[in-house]
Design a protein around this nucleic acid. Structure first.
Length: 927
RNA sequence: GGGACGUUAGCCCAGUUGGUUUAGAGCGCUGCCUUCACACGGCAGAGGUCACUGGUUCGAGUCCAGUACGUCCCACCA
């Protein structure tokens, strides 16, 4: 049957994936073999595959498949994450489309919708991973909200609470006004923003005005009188800078009385209704005159004190800071320190509340626009400047964070940070690349307590139960809680109905951090056989942007619960970017659909595309052409198969010399690359490993080896060469299989008859044999031969001699003749002769210091030959000069190691010999 | 503002304790070739004063300092 010249992944991939799952090859159970375990970074349950996942899971699959082929018991546990905020937001949106508000339905009803949504969309992403070829143990598929994982989370919470590591308290937290929940610091992303700095006028209150008039009116008049008009004209007022540094701003009323005011610079004028003080730096000469005064908040006319604190930056703005304790973290601290009132002017959705007094019900964005208009009209706005600052946004909903004072649950981090730092510093956990160790250390050393409560329903509900008479208890079940409650209150009549469970859910990462433990049920039942066998896991493959969210916290949990690291190596992948270097994102629309890519290039092609330019930790500039390269490689392999399959074995044929040398050489070459590849993979240099296999297959096997062993047209191939070729082909496929699982399985079965169960996925990797001295010599000879062949080909190409026209080759002097048969075959050389003198009328070239000639009946262009030789001479002389430079330097000869000097001497004599030969030849040509 | 990392061919990157020729791949590019596995191909070729400036050394892409540019992380400056 004719085999198509194009490899068709779609006809192959589904078939083998089904075969593998039918054979249950992905499933692992504990046995006597060494385990090799990876837990998947669980993607969002309702998410779809993006390029980051492709990258990440390709790497995991490569490592898992390789471990399996090394005889280890490979176990890759898949699963999904409930993604509290993201999923809840999706469900809220969906309900909104149906005209249902979350606030109108009960928690139970909402959760039912959420579960429906999860079942409807859940697991799509895991199906997509199958297309990629991922060999996950699907029987172990888990979910962060399934029974075991949920119970594990609750147990961990109760345990940490009982250890005193979890507490409840009122703190300034990052509030997401869209999701209506608190966030951890890690979930806030700061973005640069081109905003405005507004300069607002805060007039002194009546009494302070009176004082100021007494203190300043005369001073100003005198100063103006003496110095002339020194005031700066402002639109509505004047500003005077005194030699002592005081800066005083004032205007005049109808009667000509001076009205003094302070100027406050702010980026958030919409929060002035929450101002409860104005703050100056006690060291600031500009604002000395404001000491002890009171000022009036514009528009709302509340009188607030001027306080002093070194926190205020004298250089910023006017040196006057408005203090809004309820809506700014720093102001909150100032408020605590100076005992200020705190006025919360926002509702939870960041619209203005009754407490604001004005603009009630408007959004903060609208208020900012409106208040500026109103203040301008009222003459309370001095000026507006352009200003670049950073604004915190919610990672999930992408709306600006509103600092908010609220009651939340926190996990103390000091102890956990301590125990998590050690294994990484000590090298019990290795990071690839290692630069992330610094980042990790820095974060742990500056860590703050983790806000773990979220005002969401989708997630693990906090197991705290409030008593009717106040206070709460923490327990794994409500029944347990009741016992504790009775104990605590002494009220024996309490019933389950009297207890009210905390409404909040836990941060999603509070379940993810247990993942390597909870997947093997290590929290609930630490003595179970599976947990003991698979834990700690081996490698974690993840992106560096979740090093704090997830990696660090898993290490904490591992150390806290098992006193052992959760994994031994962490491989940080790069972040996948488009070719312009932009992070791939939905909003930019620059992320290709992975499934479409697989349809177009095949899973193997895409896997190769991902791997080719993905050294650990480097960002990946993704370009479809990489997948194209992968596809082309598949096609190359496919056509090698077509060639070999087309061969007829002639049992009577003897092995030709060229084939014999080819077999010897390729065996050595394969071993050499095998060693290199193993070394690269051990160092997690997967792209280097793949590139080495790529070149071994394409260049060494296809371009050299197959050409060397091809039988002449119409003739059969000898048995010995044929068997060796099949073996080599198999070995190549074994080496390549972890990277490109589908095509290698297909070739494996196409190339030879296989018994049931003889599948490449469970075959063993070729073992590395140490390179013998003989093999080493053959590699060197072949390198030399390849250079000779390249030169002959160049002569052919330059002189336009077709391959079918045989030529002769003349070698001056003597040389190893082992590979002459190869030269003859690949260059169509009819005769290789060895002579003592250079022949006339021939094109010459050097390989090393050996001279070769191709005699031609054509007239040789003597001028061109001379020119070529002159160039070569020039290079050789330049080279000699640099070597002589070194050798004539006494300090080099004395200071460098003997071996290095010896090498230089050898270089020198080689170069001299070559120069002599060239000169002699030139003399001959010039007649 | 603090810190980390990077800067090698048109592009993406190797270059492992300083010394195997005056730097290597892959892609792309140029020329020739439809030769009986493959044009998703074959053969050949061109292309880099290793960001810049100093320094250490017999010797620097490799070590040190500074400069420029870039990327990332952290940080409460309104």
């Amino acid at each position: 049957m004719e085999i198509s010249s194009k490899y068709s992944p779609s006809e192959v991939e589904g078939k083998w994936y089904e075969h593998w799952t039918d054979k249950n090859y992905f499933h692992s159970t504990p046995d006597e073999r060494e385990p090799y375990t990876i837990v998947i970074p669980p993607p969002n349950v309702t998410g779809v595959l993006h390029m980051g996942h492709m990258m990440n899971n390709t790497i995991q699959d490569i490592l898992i498949r390789r471990a399996r082929m090394q005889g280890k018991n490979a176990c890759w546990v898949p699963g999904t994450d409930h993604a509290s905020i993201a999923t809840e937001a999706k469900v809220v949106n969906k309900l909104a489309q149906q005209g249902i508000k979350k606030t109108d339905i009960s928690r139970e009803e909402f959760l039912k919708h959420a579960w429906d949504w999860t079942h409807e969309h859940g697991g799509i992403i895991l199906k997509q991973l199958r297309r990629l070829g991922c060999s996950c143990d699907w029987e172990r598929t888990s979910f962060t909200m399934d029974d075991i994982r949920s119970k594990s989370v609750i147990r961990a919470f109760v345990d940490l609470y009982n250890k005193g590591l979890i507490y409840r308290g009122v703190r300034m937290v990052n509030w997401d006004p869209r999701a209506l929940t608190a966030l951890s610091d890690e979930e806030v992303i700061f973005k640069d923003e081109h905003s405005k700095l507004f300069y607002l006028k805060y007039y002194l209150d009546q009494e302070s005005q009176k004082q100021a008039c007494q203190q300043l009116d005369d001073v100003i008049d005198r100063f103006v009188c003496e110095s002339g008009d020194v005031s700066e004209e402002l639109p509505t007022s004047r500003k005077i800078t005194f030699p002592d540094g005081r800066v005083i701003t004032f205007d005049e009323d109808e009667k000509g009385n001076k009205r003094y005011y302070a100027v406050v610079a702010t980026t958030r004028p919409e929060t002035i209704m929450g101002d409860t003080a104005m703050c100056i730096n006690p060291e600031d000469p500009k604002n000395q005159w404001l000491r002890g005064k009171k000022v009036v908040v514009p528009l709302v006319n509340r009188v607030i004190p001027v306080i002093e604190d070194g926190y205020v930056d004298i250089e910023f703005g006017t040196g006057c800071l408005k203090v809004t304790p309820a809506h700014d973290v720093n102001d909150y601290m100032l408020g605590e320190k100076h005992n200020l009132q705190s006025i919360n002017i926002f509702n939870d959705d960041a619209t203005l509340s009754e407490a604001a007094g004005i603009y009630v019900g408007m959004t903060r964005e609208d208020v900012r626009k409106q208040i500026i208009i109103d203040m301008k009209e009222a003459g309370l706005l001095e000026k507006i400047e352009d200003y670049n600052n950073k604004v915190g946004y919610s990672e999930r909903t992408n709306v600006p964070i509103e600092p908010k004072l609220s009651m939340q649950w926190f996990l103390r981090m000091e102890h956990l940070a301590d125990i998590a730092l050690k294994p990484v510093i000590d090298g019990d956990i290795k990071f690839y690349p290692s630069k992330y160790i610094n980042l990790y250390r820095h974060w742990l050393e500056n860590i703050k307590d983790w806000c773990i409560s979220r005002q969401l329903w989708w997630g693990h509900q906090i197991p705290a139960y409030y008593l009717p008479e106040g206070g709460f208890v923490v327990a794994e079940t409500k029944e347990e809680a009741l016992k504790l409650a009775i104990e605590k209150s002494g009220n024996k009549n309490l019933t389950l109905n009297d207890l009210r469970q905390d409404d909040d859910a836990l941060d999603t990462w509070f379940s993810s951090w247990l993942w390597p433990l909870s997947l093997f049920n290590g929290i609930l039942d630490p003595e179970n056989e599976e947990f003991k066998y698979y834990y700690p896991t081996n490698d974690l493959i993840t992106a560096p942007d979740i090093i704090f969210f997830w990696v660090a916290r898993m290490i904490m949990a591992g150390e806290e619960y098992q006193k052992e690291v959760p994994f031994k190596n962490v491989y940080f992948t790069g972040i996948v970017r488009d070719k312009l270097g932009r992070k791939m994102s939905k909003s930019l629309g620059n992320s290709p659909d992975p499934i479409e890519l697989i349809d177009k290039f095949g899973a193997d092609g895409v896997r190769m595309g991902m791997m080719l330019s993905a050294p650990a930790g480097n960002d990946i500039l993704f370009d479809e052409s990489l997948c194209e390269q992968g596809r082309n490689f598949c096609n190359k392999i496919w056509n090698a198969l077509r060639l070999v399959k087309g061969w007829n074995v002639d049992e009577n044929a003897a092995q030709p010399e060229a084939a014999k040398m080819a077999v010897k050489w390729f065996e050595a070459r394969f071993n050499q690359v095998l060693a290199e590849t193993n070394d690269n993979i051990d160092k997690y240099r997967l792209s280097d490993a793949l590139m080495a296999i790529y070149k071994l297959t394409w260049d060494d096997f296809c371009s050299w080896y197959l050409e060397m062993v091809k039988a002449p047209q119409g003739q059969g191939i000898d048995r010995e060469t044929y068997d060796a070729t099949i073996k080599f082909f198999e070995n190549l496929m074994l080496l390549l299989h972890p990277f490109m699982p589908f095509i290698t399985e297909e070739i494996w079965h196409a190339i030879a008859e296989r018994k049931d169960g003889d599948d490449i996925i469970v075959a063993q990797q070729p073992r590395f044999d140490r390179l013998s001295d003989q093999a080493d010599a053959i590699l060197k000879q072949m390198e030399f031969t390849q250079e000779v062949i390249n030169n002959v080909r160049k002569v052919r190409s330059d002189k336009n001699i077709a391959f079918r026209d045989a030529i002769q080759l003349v070698v001056k002097g003597t040389a190893n003749k082992d590979f002459d048969c190869v030269i003859a075959k690949l260059c169509n050389v009819s005769e290789i002769s060895y002579v003592a003198e250079a022949p006339a009328g021939a094109f010459g070239f050097f390989v090393g210091s050996t001279e070769f000639f191709v005699p031609l009946t054509d007239n040789v262009d003597v001028e061109a030959e001379i020119k070529k030789l002159e160039e070569e001479l020039k290079y050789a002389q330049g080279f000699l000069k640099s070597v002589e430079g070194k050798l004539s330097n006494e300090r080099f000869v004395n200071g460098a190691p003997a071996a290095v000097v010896e090498k230089e001497r050898k270089k020198k004599s080689d170069a001299e010999a070559k120069i002599a030969v060239i000169e002699q030849q030139l003399a001959g040509l010039r007649g």
